[in-house]
Design a protein around this nucleic acid. Structure first.
Lengths: 329, 329
DNA sequence: CTGAAAGCGCTTACAG
DNA sequence: CTGAAAGCGCTTACAG
């Protein structure tokens, strides 16, 4: 017993396939009684359109790929920021009646899979998330001429439209806050240098320090908690005078908090700590974390709007961040 | 400039569409020089088959839906067990050259989305993960006659084939271990009662206690860390004599560890603790956790094999677990 | 408002 | 080993 087709519905309702198609797709110009008859037939047979057939003619799939350039462990367990972004984007896409296809592409094999999938016409658009360095994905996907928006500024030489939060401005505000607290030696724990979010936040830190005529003190990290703890230990070793730290991600700030506690430094009395992201955990840390809130939902909404727009967007959109002051700084 | 079609490749190579199709699909019987000519044309045009057209005739999509009946927060951040399972299943599916479509279906709206997607013929099969109670999904999906395998024993009245680990046996072994340690008052922190994994582990606990002629002491939990901490506090309040606890998940065991520490009880000296799952964190807790290892990779492989089998499998497959003894018990 | 017909881009018996 | 032709299940101008 095969799934019923349009043909079967048409036969049962006593109309043509074209009419059934119109009713199913909600076209306006169908006589009410005909519509009713068709709907009844649809219900009776449990008819659901075959999506392959539909895609073949409409050239649409109503699916969007959300491509994350990170390994599964990081997406699924480690970083609550990813889950927040994925959740927000999914919600927007679902609201727009699109199916989300989550694809992780951290390995070359993953890249190839994504390329084939997109090139095969499985999706109407691609959202790029968490790209590192000169990710080859935009160029590869560009060939299939599928609309593509990057979540966050891409490094790509290709002009991929994107939406991002104001990483530089947010970082600068946070560092200015630390300086405004009267802190003398303000360090930063930077993110991975191959990611623009990390670059921009570092630039914001430098700008604030330069404006205040201070020497920068930078410890490298990679956005993870462990790297934050390590960096904090190094910072303390390098310069025991450190009395404030801006971590380029909350997870790193949390790591730093742990390292400071282990080193017997009080937060914020001895060392003030600020983060970036405002993940949920930031409210529950000891002490609660002062941080820069990213407008996750707004960025997600913006990206989906850009992606589904009739005209491909040209200018990037930068959304403002907000400093959330809690107990840590 | 549209994507090139079979037609274009055929014209360029000077052969028929049928021949191009054969080459592209790796059919054996094509003359080497013809094959070469076609491949060259494919390369030159950057031809990639249109998947909608292909699906329409083959009635296959080479995609499999992995449906998780949990909210995004739990899948993406909270529970490392999900990420392990998703990762393992994805790996197996990719090895079998299938695309994984991850779908979360914790709300009625999510259910409807999944149903429509599956009924629309988007996938060749469905893997059900983490179903609760009498989940309506199997019945709904059953109507589309898509092959379906459950990861873990379903409650469903429908005979959904499944693969699971030996939850009852694993739990019994763990509890026997606690009793073998000479513990007198062995409690359990149970999982959500609407999940078979929780039911079976509880049954294993009861069986071991009954065999040893002990009274059961059960505190309800829901597999999360917080619920484990709560349950442990209640257990301590209900019966201060408790000197061993079997938690039905590692996350709950970790929560119990925290609660015990807060209550000033030493582990394992005062209270021995065992968990279930063997998530990565289990090795790094203080003290490292004695737990029951689930064969995550093996279950994943089994499920994919069952799903892709020519004949729909009938009997469930139960894989053995293994007690991993560390410092906590 | 409705239907007949063409066509989306493939695969696959069927001949040869 | 290769090609001509039918057909997968839809949508959509085009007539009427």
């Amino acid at each position: 017993m095969r799934r019923p087709t349009l043909e079967a519905v048409a036969a049962l309702a006593g109309v043509s396939r074209a009419t059934v198609s119109r009713v199913v797709n909600g076209a306006a110009n169908v006589k009410p009684d005909v519509r009713t008859a068709v709907m009844r037939a649809v219900d009776e047979l449990g008819y659901i359109p075959n999506s392959a057939a539909r895609s073949l003619v409409t050239r649409r799939t109503d699916s969007i790929a959300l491509v994350v350039s990170e390994p599964p462990s990081r997406v699924f367990s480690d970083d609550p920021f990813f889950s927040a972004v994925i959740r927000a984007v999914s919600q927007e896409l679902e609201a727009a009646d699109r199916q989300v296809i989550l694809m992780l592409a951290s390995s070359p094999a993953g890249h190839a899979r994504v390329e084939r999938y997109v090139a095969g016409g499985h999706v109407d658009g691609v959202i790029l998330l968490s790209m590192h360095g000169a990710d080859p994905l935009p160029a590869a996907l560009g060939r299939s001429r599928v609309p593509m928006i990057s979540h966050g500024r891409p490094v790509s030489s290709l002009p991929v439209p994107y939406c991002d939060c104001d990483n530089e401005g947010g970082a600068r505000t946070a560092v200015e806050h630390l300086i405004g607290l009267g802190r003398r030696r303000v360090a930063t724990i930077a993110g991975p240098p191959d990611m623009t979010a990390a670059q921009d936040r570092l630039a914001g830190y430098r700008a604030a320090l330069t404006a205040a005529n201070r020497r920068p003190l930078v410890a490298p990290g990679d956005f993870t908690r462990e790297s934050g703890a390590n960096a904090m230990r190094n910072l303390l070793a390098d310069d025991p005078e450190v009395d404030a730290v801006f971590a380029a991600s909350d997870l790193m700030a949390l790591g730093a908090l742990g390292a400071l506690r282990a080193a017997g430094r009080r937060v914020p009395e001895d060392v003030a700590v600020a983060g970036f992201d405002d993940i949920e955990l930031a409210r529950f840390s000891e002490p609660p974390l002062t941080t820069v809130r990213q407008p996750v939902a707004e960025v997600a909404a913006c990206i989906v709007t850009m992606l589904l727009a009739a005209e491909p967007p040209t200018a990037p959109v930068i959304l403002p961040t907000e400093l959330v002051v809690r107990a840590s700084a």
